[in-house]
Simulated assay, not measured.
Amino acid sequence: MVTTTPSQSPFVDPAELVADPYSAYSRLREAGPVHRITGTDGLPAWVVTRYDDVRQALADPRLSLDKRNAAPGGYHGLALPPALDANLLNMDPPDHTRIRRLVSRAFTPRHIARLRGPIRETADSLLDAIEPYGHADLIASYAAPLPITVICDLLGVAPHDRHDFRSWTDALVAPDPAQPHRAKESVRSMLAFFTRLIADKHASPADDLLSSLIAVRDDADRLSEDELMSLAFLILVAGYENTVHLIGNSTLALLSHPDQLSAVRADPGRLGGAVEELARYDGPVPLAIRRFPTEDITIGGVGIPAGETVLLSLAAAHRDPHRFTEPDRLDIGRDATGHLALGHGIHYCLGAPLARMETEVALAALLDRFPDLALDVAPDVLRWRPSMRSRGLLGLPVRF
C-alpha cells in the first residue's frame, strides 16, 4: 500500500506551465520533490521536480513507457494506428531492447558524420535566401526548414516528396483544440506517405537510413513493417520537433545574453560546449515522455500508485541549484555535463549526436553570416508553442 503523501503543493495554473514554465516549476521544486497537478489536458499527473529524483526515475525500470500500463480511465494520448505506434517511446524491455539493438546497427556514426557538410550547405543556402532582406522570422525561414531537410536526407526522402511535414508534425505535437480533425488528418497522411516510402525502399534500396533499417538483421531477427513505419515516423517527428526548438531557443538565449553571445563569437571553438549549456538552460523538452509505474513506488519520499501518470520535469531539474550553481544564469563556460535534455538510461535519445551537431552547425552558420544579428521585437511579445511538453517559439523575428 502507498501511504506517503506529498506536501501541500502551491497552486500552478496549467497555462503557466506553458507561459512561464521555469517560474512555475521553481515554485513546485522549492515546495517539494513531487506534486500532483492537473495538466493542460485536464488530467491529473504526478510531476517530479528535483534533479536527483528525475535522473534516477529516468532509468527506473518500474516506470513504464508502455501505455497499456496506464490505469483505466487515466492517461489518454493521441490515438495512433499500430503502424505508427510501435515505436521506442511506447516500449519497455524486452521489445525496446530488441528494436534499439537493431536500430543501432543502422543508425551508425557513419550516417551521422557524413551529414555535417550537407547540413552546413543547407544552412548557408537558407541564409542566402534571407540575407538580402535584412530581417527574417528565423523559425519559419531557418530553424524549421533546416531539420526537415536533414531528416529527409537521412531517411532518403526525395526532394519532390518533402511536403507538409511541418504541418503534420505541428498538428500532432501541439494540436489546435479548435481544429481537432487536423491531428487525425495528419496521422492518415503520414501513414499513407510512409507506407508508400517504405514500399519504394523495398523495391529500390539506396544508401540511406531507411534502406539500412529495412536491410538490418540480427541473426534471424529483423524489423517488422509496423516497426519500420513507426521508427520512420518517430525519427521524422522527434528529429524535426526537438531540433527546430533547440535551434530557436538557443538563438534567443544568445541574443538575450550579449555577454555570452560575445564569448561565442570571440572563440567559436566553444560552441560545442555552449550547445550543452543551451540545452540545459532552455531545452525543447520541459517534460520527459509520460511514464506509468508498474507497481506502487516512492519517489522523493512520496508514494505514487501503480498506473498513474508520472511526468519527469527536465525543466525543473535543469534549474535545480543543488545540481547546477546559479542555474537561472546562462553560462557557456559552465560544465553542463549531466544535463538531461537528451534523456538518460536506456531511453537516452538515439539521435543525440545528430541533434548536437545540427544545432552547432546551425548556430555557427548563423553567427558567421550575421555579425550584427539582433532581435527585431521585444522579448516579451514572442509567442511560445501552447504545450507543456514541448518548449518552442512560434516565431523569432530578427534583423541583421
Results as ranks from 00 to 15, higher is better:
residue 303 G to V: 00
residue 47 V to M: 09
residue 247 I to S: 00
residue 57 A to C: 02
residue 146 L to Q: 11
residue 181 H to A: 15
residue 247 I to N: 02
residue 129 A to I: 10
residue 340 L to E: 00
residue 280 R to V: 04
residue 92 D to S: 05
residue 27 R to S: 07
residue 359 T to P: 10
residue 269 G to Y: 11
residue 243 T to M: 03
residue 399 R to P: 12
residue 75 Y to H: 04
residue 17 L to N: 01
residue 206 A to E: 15
residue 321 P to N: 08
residue 83 A to G: 08
residue 341 A to S: 10
residue 278 L to K: 11
residue 155 L to A: 03
residue 174 A to S: 12
residue 57 A to F: 08
residue 305 P to D: 04
residue 151 I to C: 07
residue 91 M to E: 08
residue 269 G to C: 10
residue 193 F to R: 12
residue 312 L to E: 05
residue 142 Y to E: 02
residue 28 L to R: 03
residue 149 T to Q: 15
residue 382 L to E: 08
residue 7 S to K: 15
residue 359 T to R: 06
residue 21 P to D: 06
residue 342 L to D: 11
residue 138 L to P: 08
residue 91 M to T: 06
residue 264 V to C: 10
residue 244 V to T: 12
residue 90 N to W: 06
residue 331 D to H: 06
residue 9 S to Q: 06
residue 217 R to N: 12
residue 288 A to V: 07
residue 106 A to W: 02
residue 209 L to N: 10
residue 258 P to I: 02
residue 133 Y to A: 15
residue 361 V to K: 03
residue 353 P to G: 02
residue 341 A to I: 04
residue 19 A to D: 15
residue 392 G to Y: 11
residue 82 P to C: 02
residue 293 P to R: 01
residue 343 G to P: 11
residue 114 R to W: 04
residue 149 T to S: 14
residue 317 A to Y: 01
residue 165 F to K: 06
residue 157 V to F: 02
residue 155 L to Y: 11
residue 387 S to Y: 10
residue 16 E to D: 13
residue 54 V to H: 02
residue 354 L to Q: 01
residue 227 E to A: 13
residue 280 R to I: 14
residue 188 R to V: 13
residue 3 T to W: 05
residue 137 D to R: 12
residue 311 L to G: 00
residue 384 W to A: 03
residue 289 I to P: 14
residue 359 T to L: 14
residue 219 D to N: 12
residue 202 H to A: 01
residue 161 D to C: 10
residue 100 R to Y: 00
residue 341 A to N: 05
residue 23 S to M: 09
residue 383 R to H: 01
residue 18 V to R: 04
residue 360 E to I: 07
residue 14 P to R: 11
residue 119 I to K: 07
residue 236 L to A: 13
residue 73 G to A: 09
residue 180 P to H: 03
residue 278 L to W: 01
residue 110 R to H: 13
